[in-house]
Design a protein around this nucleic acid. Structure first.
Lengths: 257, 257
DNA sequence: GAGTGGTCTAGACCACTTC
DNA sequence: AAGTGGTCTAGACCACTCC
């Protein structure tokens, strides 16, 4: 448990080793260890992690300290607590909320399902800005996926998705089409890449000719441009996505606190 | 502390009164009491609330229970903790982050200040949709404020802000202009209305003639339409705002978890 | 040094799920 | 009944701020 573990709690005259700049509380160290285990795949998505008491024994700390570590993981949506059952690794597959990261809502009624259509899936050298965003070496190759999402037979979203070719070897339009759930579910189960967190930059843009045709709107129609950079464990960027949303009958919802 | 307080903690044979449907943990009850005190103005914005030990005595619970209540208030940004100093009521005035709710970021460099210009401030009967959003009775009057925000002398945001006339009696363009900080700071200190939480609906729209002139863009330019409903304590809606953002050199940033 | 929030422990009991 | 997360307590000590 590193330098600063009390070992036997009170009045041990082993002072915490003040080794320079860092101080991190015990529960943060435990949290880091848990994240490591998640990252290493010790517990798979949708599986239960050990109980709090088990973990407390394993790390030689009190149950309350483990609890606080897990509390933070739950707040970050890395795990899900279920009273009486256990604590489970979060997953994008088999989620009731079909698209955890998609903030698009229809003007009327709640979110019904959307039909996916894959236009394209090909490998190429990553363009400079993609390489930069995904922290690829210049010359590394990337996968470009293009697809639309439709509601009631009308296309609403056009996505252009860039992925590093390395981890996503074997990704194809067929694989994508065959898989039933959300794309991030496929990434998780087939490629071992879990999306944890993302940042989006949103703008208003005019539809160009190609986009206009695919979204079935006049050229120049204002569209929402949503540029997403998604990260996996350790804040490593693993997907750059640009979505164009037709907001004639939908809106992007957000909560401010 | 209502029905379900153990009184003397373990093995009191006073069983919790199972009165129907609700069960709420002690710390939630404490939290509700604290919110009530905030709402009633017992502690003013930017003031310190009593220490955890004081509150524990006052409510006859342990310090840990008070702590958990305050933890949640801090997570909801109702209060701010500062180690060694105390816990303070959150405020929109005197905040380092000038605009807590404004998600607009310049493409280059960090967020510098924006220049405000008030175009309009007048009272009128609330239009139907405004009345509905703000839960006003039909015929109630509302205040409409219109303003722009500029960076480097270029207008970037055009806001149209609807407020219930009742709580905002005396609001005028002069008052707005004279006040230095963010508008929500004025609302807080002058009208006792604190903005706690907001929901935004975002769309892409084309600039109409009037908007185009104010934002100095060609008619038809795609703009971000940001419709915000802001709430005060108890989730009561108190502001409906529609902003039009020129996203040529700025973007709306968002974090997904 | 006194006061405040922050961490950690140990133990009891409650609520929920499963067998 | 057993196992899990959830609540609550009591007490000790640490880190930070201010005087």
């Amino acid at each position: 448990m590193s330098a600063q573990l009390p070992a036997d709690p009170p009045d041990a005259d082993v002072l915490p080793v003040a080794e320079g700049p860092a101080f991190s509380p015990l529960y943060q160290q435990i949290k880091a260890l848990l994240v490591r285990s998640l990252q290493d795949g010790e517990w798979k998505p949708a599986e239960a992690i050990p109980s709090e008491t088990d973990l407390a024994q394993r790390y030689k700390v009190s149950q309350g300290t483990v609890r606080k570590a897990i509390d933070e993981l739950a707040a970050e949506n890395l795990v899900v607590r279920r009273q009486g059952k256990g604590t489970f690794v979060a997953t994008h597959a088999e989620e009731n909320i079909q698209y955890r990261f998609l903030r698009l809502t229809p003007d009327d009624g709640p979110s019904t399902g959307m039909a996916r259509r894959f236009l394209d899936c090909r490998r190429m050298r990553a363009p400079a800005e993609v390489a930069k965003a995904l922290a690829l070496k210049p010359g590394d190759s990337a996968v470009l996926v293009r697809r639309t999402l439709s509601r009631d037979d009308h296309p609403v979203v056009l996505d252009e998705i860039w992925l590093p070719a390395g981890p996503f070897k074997g990704l194809s339009a067929e694989r994508l089409s065959q898989y039933a759930g959300p794309m991030y579910g496929l990434f998780e189960t087939e490629f071992g890449v879990r999306m944890i967190r993302a940042e989006e930059k949103i703008r208003a843009v005019a539809a160009d000719a190609a986009t206009a045709e695919l979204l079935e709107v006049p050229v120049g129609t204002p569209l929402l441009s949503v540029e997403r950079l998604a990260h996996t464990y350790g804040d490593r960027p693993v997907e750059l996505r640009r979505g164009l949303y037709n907001t004639a009958a939908h809106f992007y919802r957000n909560e401010l606190n």
